[in-house]
Amino acid sequence: MNRYYWILGGFAALVALLAVGLNLNPRDVPSPLVGKPAPAFTLSQLAEPDKSLSPKDMQGKVWLFNVWASWCVSCRQEHPILVEFSKKVDVPLIGLNYKEVRGDGGFDMSKMPADEEKKLAWQRANRWLSEHGNPYKLTVMDLDGRVGIDYGVYGVPETYVIDKSGVIRMKHTGPITPEVLAKRIMPLLAELNK
């Protein structure tokens, strides 16, 4: 009889293991960039295309870097939270518009000249922000997604918390929920701004 308890115990342990495994989020891949300096870039700003921004311009400030696009459905979900955040909290929120035109999937990029892509991207991004509200201090445009690759972006929206010395302190993949904001981001911002 004793040995049947062993088998039953083993089976229960297996079930527990699988239950835990099934409840993990496979999208939640830990970023190797946490603890490393934010990758450098120089990208044009959405509001003023002649001006650019680099992470080093943000040196000395704690800031949030949020990856978004108008074609990104989950971005819509987190957007009101960001708008609310920008009204209440004095931490600069910088947007990275990720592949505004190419990521849409509805355009044949082989037939689109670069200047047309640019025009369309600016148009679409501006329209989206005027429709849904603009929580960003400014947004930079990553048309071909190369900066996204440097930041290990694989599922928009993504959000990075970057500290005063330009080091990435946290990365969140997927839409920011009120819980993530309250439990993870706000405490970290408070600590970094001390």
Partner: peptide, 8 residues
């Protein structure tokens, strides 16, 4: 690749 996306 690993530097950006991790061992995964």
């Amino acid at each position: 690749m690993v530097a950006r996306y991790g061992d995964f």
